[in-house]
């Protein structure tokens, strides 16, 4: 790491030794004796590459990565699963949203090593071989996407919404989709898609279709 004196004109070396406060506890720098019974304890692994086994879209994925690699980066950079996007990389925008054991999670803010043994679903795992997931179809049908970069995250969040509330109210939908940001401004139609997807058994919507002749005027 570059010396803080160079970067910011203030030395942080002392601080780094003493200020590791956070998470659920304070930092530990002392080598003092503890009253907690000394025990073999769990194994310390890393910081170099370690084997990490993930279950993604029902398939087993064996990787060798550093413990610091996030779930998002593990899939995008090591498994070529690039459907979910990196946008804010800090758990603010939702483009990286995956479903981990049935609940949505920001994969940018999840370590890959922490989700071993869990069922991970990405946007790639939603569509069938020849058919889209009803949520994906609804997004297409109402044009709930533009540049499409937020879309995979929104699609995953909407799938999770409807798995939790199959008959979601607009209020429930808004709340469950509040963790995602779109910059093109497709929100109105995403809401429309969510409401449409919950009634997939209903009649097809407006006359818009791909490629066919004789599309009716809207």
């Amino acid at each position: 790491m570059s010396d803080k004196e160079d970067r910011f004109g203030v030395s942080r070396r002392d601080f780094l030794k003493s200020a590791g406060v956070g998470g659920l506890a304070t930092a530990v720098t002392s080598a003092g004796v503890t009253d907690v019974e000394a025990q073999a304890g769990p194994r310390v692994i890393g910081p170099g590459d370690v084997p990490v086994s993930l279950t993604v879209n029902g398939k087993r994925l064996e990787l060798r990565i550093e413990p610091r690699v996030t779930l998002l980066d593990a899939l995008r950079n090591r498994a070529d699963l690039t459907g979910n996007k990196r946008v804010c990389d800090r758990g603010s925008c939702g483009a990286c949203t995956m479903i981990v054991d049935g609940r949505t999670a920001y994969s940018c803010s999840t370590l890959a090593i922490d989700v071993q043994g869990k069922q991970i679903r990405t946007v790639e795992g939603l569509a069938g071989a020849n058919t889209l997931h009803p949520v994906q179809q609804a997004f297409c049908d109402v044009d709930a996407l533009m540049c499409g970069f937020c879309t995979p995250g929104f699609v995953v969040a909407t799938v999770a919404l409807l798995e939790k509330y199959p008959n979601a109210t607009p209020e429930q939908a808004r709340r469950e989709l509040d963790g995602n940001i779109c910059r093109c401004g497709t929100f109105v139609r995403i809401m429309e898609a969510a409401m449409k997807a919950k009634t997939v058994a209903g009649p097809p919507t407006r006359q818009a279709r791909w490629g066919d002749m004789g599309v009716a005027r809207g």
Binding site: F139, C140, D143, Q207, A208, W210, A216
Partner: peptide
């Protein structure tokens, strides 16, 4: 001028 679905939507 009709409502045509975005081709790259899928």
């Amino acid at each position: 001028s009709t409502r045509v679905l975005r081709l790259d939507g899928p």
